[in-house]
Amino acid sequence: MTEKSRTLSLKHRGMNFEMLMWIFTRLSALAMYAFFLVGLAGAFWMGARYHMNFADVMRWAFTTNVTHVQSTALPSLDPWATWFWKLVASGLYLTASAHGIHGMVVIADDYIVSPGGRKVVRLLSMVFMLAFSVMGVYVLWTS
């Protein structure tokens, strides 16, 4: 490919809700990487390399919920069940929920093109976001 790709800087693209959500999707991906790295570093700090395999460490870092490591050879689960890890898990879960539900709306928009249909999709996405945020955070703090 010899022709240079045409790109437009962010400040020249205009700002509206869709643009804000486009930026949110990218920044939330980076935020999830930050949560993941905190979980990963914490796992090694708490001795993961002596008691867990690679997949166990990944499962923990993707959501720092103590139930994700209960089947490992860890001598004690107490350090893995502190309020700090519940807070990290809640942060990652809420970020991922918003990122994921918006992603589903973007996919739905490719197939549902009527204004009424798109309104229904957006209404459903808000109901889902609210319901699954409450349920997910409840599960994280009570497990």
């Binding site: 994921g100 539900i101 992603g103 589903m104 996919i107 997910g136």
Partner: peptide, 17 residues
Amino acid sequence: GGMGMATFISIHVLASF
């Protein structure tokens, strides 16, 4: 992958709840 994760994580959260 995105749709798969959204589906499976939703069911996982619902099942745990």
